[in-house]
Amino acid sequence: MQNLQFEKAWDRTLSAKDRKRIEEIFSETKSISEHPVHFSTLWQAKNYKGELLITVLIHNFRQQLLSFCETPIRYVEGTTIIAEHIFTIPSLRIEPTTSMPWTFIFPKESIICETSLMNGHLQFMYEKL
């Protein structure tokens, strides 16, 4: 059975409204196990530096720990690749059969074309898992 877990800093700072939304999306998507890892988009934004912030609920449906070390990920809207970046996040470790929210920050230089910030999703640039 899939469990929802929050990283400690998220658990302390997350608003009640955002927590409720994450819990609702978890309930709706916790059984999507077509792939060993699935990203459910929560929200997307651009910050003042021009970076692209994509917040997702990461579902680790595998029976092993999930970590991100030199992991190439892209942000796609429809069929258009918006950004690509290789992520190494030492603090992000997702236990087996666990889902956790996380924000991936794509540096300005990783953005390939303009974004509408609507209906986008993350995907691995190649099937690593």
Rank of each mutant, 00 (worst) to 15 (best):
H35T: 15
P36Y: 14
P36V: 15
V37C: 09
V37G: 06
H38P: 02
H38K: 12
H38A: 13
H38N: 14
H38S: 13
H38V: 15
H38E: 14
F39H: 03
F39Y: 09
F39I: 02
S40N: 09
S40W: 07
T41N: 07
T41Y: 00
T41H: 04
T41W: 00
L42H: 01
L42E: 00
W43Q: 11
W43G: 02
Q44S: 15
A45E: 08
A45L: 04
A45C: 04
K46M: 12
Y48A: 15
K49F: 15
K49V: 04
K49C: 05
G50W: 01
E51S: 08
E51N: 13
L52W: 00
L52V: 03
L52N: 01
L52G: 03
L52F: 01
L52E: 00
I54W: 00
T55E: 07
V56M: 02
L57P: 08
L57A: 06
H59K: 09
N60C: 06
N60D: 06
F61L: 06
R62E: 13
Q63F: 10
Q63Y: 11
Q63T: 12
Q64C: 06
L65D: 07
L66W: 10
L66V: 08
L66Y: 10
S67E: 07
S67V: 06
C69H: 07
C69K: 09
E70R: 08
T71L: 10
P72R: 05
P72M: 06
P72S: 06
P72F: 04
R74I: 04
R74D: 04
R74E: 09
R74Q: 10
R74T: 05
Y75P: 02
Y75G: 02
Y75C: 02
Y75T: 01
V76Y: 03
V76E: 07
V76K: 13
V76D: 03
E77P: 04
T79L: 11
T79D: 11
T79R: 12
T79H: 10
T80N: 13
T80F: 07
T80C: 10
T80A: 14
